[in-house]
């Protein structure tokens, strides 16, 4: 097994607040890796660091052996890190298809002059953009909603669209920030199936989740954060039996499935 992503000694401070404190994380290729922890544990901050949305105060991230810390977020996407947002960040006024087409941006190359001249190359690339976008919509089961305005989708639909959009950037690592939030049990089952199919395409998945049924059901590795520190890591089984984890969650009423 090969390490696809390696985060070393990641610390993030916002003013006096320490959001992450010396986190080490390594994600293995082809796995579904879950990141869990109570609210405010720093999970989203970690995802922001890994997708280069936030620059860590200290520490470095290497992706496929290449250092990516400090690069702008779009180049992380270009290198193959796709992500979704916890508080859904769609292009609400655009159609579902347009949302996914925008995400093909970094997989197309033609420039301004070519666009104006509309060369053969442009037409070919545009055709691919449309095809791939439709493919991804098909993949998440939204092909029939292609011309709906994204803002008018129901909550579950918006989450799926975010995933389709992230997949359209052709990631080799997909970061999902609470994909099941606000979904009903049936939708969660579809989502679990979807995540497995994503892995089936050879894409490594790192996800933040609160839904333990989902985590225990499909994750290969689970990392637990609490107060910005890593408190445990292991298989779902090991995590379920971990004393520290139980303590961290105790009284929070979270039940393991």
């Amino acid at each position: 097994m090969r390490t696809i992503l390696q985060a070393e000694d990641i610390t993030v401070r916002f003013g006096g607040l320490v959001a992450l404190n010396g986190i080490n994380l390594s994600v293995q290729e082809g796995q579904i890796h879950a990141l869990i922890g109570p609210n405010g544990a720093g999970k989203t901050t970690l995802i922001n660091v890994l997708s280069n949305v936030t620059t860590p105060t200290t520490g470095r991230v290497t992706f496929n052996g290449e250092p990516i810390t400090g690069l702008p977020a779009h180049s992380a996407t270009e290198k193959g890190i796709g992500r979704t947002f916890q508080n859904i960040l769609l292009f609400a006024g655009a159609t579902v298809l347009e949302n996914v087409m925008i995400a093909r941006h970094c997989r197309t190359k033609y420039g301004l002059l070519e666009a104006i001249l509309r060369t053969r190359n442009v037409l070919n690339e545009e055709e691919t953009v449309c095809q791939k976008a439709l493919q991804e919509l098909e993949f998440v089961g939204m092909a029939d909603k292609a011309s709906t305005i994204a803002g008018n989708l129901d909550h579950g639909g918006q989450r799926l669209l975010e995933i389709a959009r992230a997949l359209a950037t052709e990631p080799s690592l997909l970061l999902l920030d609470e994909p099941s939030a606000g979904m009903n049990p049936q939708e969660v089952n579809t989502l679990m199936d979807l995540i497995l199919r994503i892995r089936g395409r050879g894409i490594t998945v790192l996800l933040i989740e609160h839904n333990m049924q989902l985590v225990m059901g499909i994750a290969d590795v689970v990392t637990v954060l609490n107060f910005g520190e890593k408190i445990a890591e292991g298989t779902p089984k090991e995590i379920q039996n971990n004393k520290d984890v139980r303590e961290a969650y105790l009284g929070r009423g979270i039940q393991y499935a």
Binding site: A73, H74, H105
Partner: peptide, 9 residues
């Protein structure tokens, strides 16, 4: 932000 994360410089 969404544009940037979708790979737009």
């Amino acid at each position: 932000l969404a544009a940037e994360v979708m790979g737009v410089n």
